[in-house]
Amino acid sequence: MADNREFFYRRLHSLLGVIPIGLFLMQHLTVNFFSTYGPEAFNNAAGFMENLPLRLGLEIFVIYLPLLFHAIYGVFIAFTAEPNTIRYGFFRNWMFLVQRITGILTLIFIAWHVWETRLANAIYGTEINFDLMASILSDPIMFWFYIIGVVSAVFHFANGLWSFFVTWGLTISPKSQLVMTYITIAIFAVFTYMGISSLIAFAS
């Protein structure tokens, strides 16, 4: 086991992408969806998350550390591939390529998003509420940046979940993998809808 770090790192990368990062993403988009019910509903929902006990510990172990590992190792994985979708235009090969592109886009988006919300709060004491998001998203460039970021993140999660099921040997047969393709498409559709509606609610 000691001389076999690669297998461990790869499996850890796959696991962390779903647990906890994927779970956090779904929770985050669910809380954000309260923005469609109005500013007060959103502020209450976000306030509930903000006041969770041991918040900093949760943030460090559920978000920051897993995300850092997943991101850094993921960039390494993405850049060791040599995409060949022009010659092999199969569906899964496109998913392979888009998974790597959305991974990089999501990393850029999250870095910016964490800077302007969580880090701004920690450094400058910026209050995180409906108005903060409304002012960020009133700029059309930022609005589209957020749209691209959210769609990338949700795609990366949904397609990554499909890979997770193969990587851990849960879906082996082509049939089970196909069913999982449909399930992950549904997950992508639901959370993309939730993410985009939240952004529209903040912006309008």
């Binding site: 092999y88 199969f90 899964r92 193969v166 990587t167 082509p174």
Partner: peptide, 26 residues
């Protein structure tokens, strides 16, 4: 393996390569 599944699409002998990979994963 990055699950691009080009192998199973390209194999001239129709070997279920990706099924083998997933089975080994399990």
């Amino acid at each position: 393996c990055g699950n691009s599944q080009n192998c199973v699409q390209s194999c001239p002998k129709g070997i279920p390569l990706t099924t083998s990979i997933a089975a080994l994963n399990r």
